[in-house]
Amino acid sequence: MKEDKIKLMEVCGTHTMAIARAGIKKLLPSEIELISGPGCPVCVTSQADIDRAIEISRIDNVIITTFGDMMRVPGTKTSFEDMKRDGADIRVVYSPLDALTISEDNPQKRVVFMGVGFETTSPTVAATIIEARKRGLRNFFVLSNFKVLFPALEALAGSSKLKVDGFICPGHVSVVTGTIPYAKIASHYKKPCVITGFDEIDIVKGIKRLVEQIKSHRCTTEIEYRRAVTEDGNIEARRVLDSVFDVKDSHWRGLGMIKESGLKLKNKYRQFDAEKEFKVKLPKAILPKGCICGEVLQGIKGPRDCKLFGKVCTPRKPVGPCMVSSEGTCAAYYRYGE
């Protein structure tokens, strides 16, 4: 008798990469299917938000600071990498605090930090903004494209197109958020959630616990990453985050506009808001023809369903963002031959 397939979504891009790197899919029983979710911050950033950052980089005496992942992401017309080659001052930083140092070293220039990321990243940027105020910096700005994970997760849990049986939940995000935001996913949408770490053993154990929940018809949130995650999460990080940012509606590539799924600077920190400081004219955002990143991010299609995959779209010349980021689903499939 053929068993029903169990469809699990790994929400986080770092999980997608780790699963591919360890070859976990090849060892799983055939009835368990893993699909990749929207948890790559670079990938879900909308085309318009990327275009805005690129337009700002064209302005004289502006230094853009960004995490490395963003460099090759194609906007409608060009990318940071191409802009840099053509002379724009774009610098890869490893910590948002590095951008403050650059601001101090270049008082005659305006320094913009390209803020992309989930709850793992945004508290550190909030702390950076508080520090910028403390240091009295007037030439430091943040372009806030931060995303809040849970509204998107709810959208996926409630999606009629995507029928997921459970979520492999992100360890890093959960270090900050704790388990409380998962409660609705488990109880209202009846989707088991297991938070897990990034070693292959963590992931395999996480999958096992999800399957156990599904087989016994339970829907709860479990932690398989106790060495880092607690129920309460990092209360201090959330306090810092909430003191600097408010939620806003935000556009996700593939998922569209999701209510209260983004972050904007609070009014009292508006002097650091790059969107307010730089009024730029955006090109009409055109998504690359043939690219199915949007559907890949929703888990409806896989990279190999894309006609461009591995032919026109490669990590070197990516057409869509999922091929760029070290957490992108297409990059993982390309690199590890999934």
């Binding site: 770092t14 490395g68 992942d69 460099m71 992309v116 990243t121 070197r316 070290s326 690199r335």
Partner: peptide, 13 residues
């Protein structure tokens, strides 16, 4: 285990 395609870039999270 493929050949390196493009420079490794430091990631976000």
């Amino acid at each position: 285990l493929p050949m390196l395609e493009a420079d490794q870039l430091p990631r976000i999270c």
